[in-house]
């Protein structure tokens, strides 16, 4: 599903955020991406969604060579990847329903189909009754669930989460992690960046560990 070969990322200011990263994550697998703050976790996820471009090496995601992907193709590629952000990135002037519907609206899905899929996604994250509310009226955990519903509403084969539980207490963050685990059991490939070791021990999934931009532990690649 994801294959990094000798990938480096140097930011325009000269900072080398990732150095010669190589790993493979098989289809339908799940892995944790860990490391100290500033280790390069967000940068790695941004390379997968093409928010940033690698400065060296090859990245293949979902059988697409990202280095060669033309600019015009980026939006269509992103529809195959669901992303969850620590700060949710919800639209505060739209209802929960409209927020979750956005990826479908963007890809031109019909009205009725949109309604059906949005409700299915909200049902999965346990927010079915709240579709008419505005995000601001929801708790942090609920807002993150809206973000998750939005990420999965398109049924992407790959799900990326960048510290999705960063601002939540232990119980809420366990619930969110269980949700990701569930999606993985449905067959979605999942990468979760976190610095909470607790989740790793709880879910017992392979770990990719970054330290100062280098991959110091690779529990995901086979062989």
């Amino acid at each position: 599903m994801i294959r990094f070969s000798q990938v480096s990322k140097r930011y325009p200011n000269g900072h080398e955020a990732l150095r010669r990263i190589s790993f493979t994550l098989e289809r339908q697998h799940m892995a944790f991406l860990v490391g100290h703050s500033g280790a390069g976790k967000s940068t790695l996820l941004k390379l997968i969604t093409l928010v940033e471009r690698s400065t060296h090496g090859q990245i293949v995601v979902n059988s697409r060579n990202l280095v060669k992907l033309p600019h015009r193709q980026i939006p269509y590629f992103r529809r195959e990847v669901g992303v969850i952000f620590q700060d949710h990135k919800l639209l505060h002037d739209r209802t929960v329903f409209d927020n979750v519907a956005l990826p479908l609206v963007v890809s031109g899905v019909g009205h009725r189909e949109t309604g059906r899929r949005v409700r299915a996604a909200l049902d999965k994250v346990g927010l079915l009754g709240k579709e008419r509310l505005y995000p601001i009226t929801l708790s942090g955990g609920e807002q993150q669930r809206v973000g998750i519903a939005r990420a999965v509403v398109n049924r992407p084969p790959l799900l990326l989460a960048d510290e999705p539980t960063g601002n939540l207490d232990a119980q809420l963050s366990d619930e969110i992690m269980d949700l990701f685990h569930q999606f993985n059991q449905y067959g979605v490939t999942v990468i979760i960046a976190t610095h909470e070791r607790r989740h790793i021990q709880r879910l017992n999934k392979p770990v990719l560990e970054l330290k100062d931009g280098r991959l110091v532990h690779d529990g995901a690649s086979i062989g």
Partner: peptide, 14 residues
């Protein structure tokens, strides 16, 4: 601006 960035992140074309 924020909305545009979000739409781009979830695959909205220009």
């Amino acid at each position: 601006r924020e909305e545009i960035e979000i739409i781009r992140l979830i695959g909205g074309t220009d």
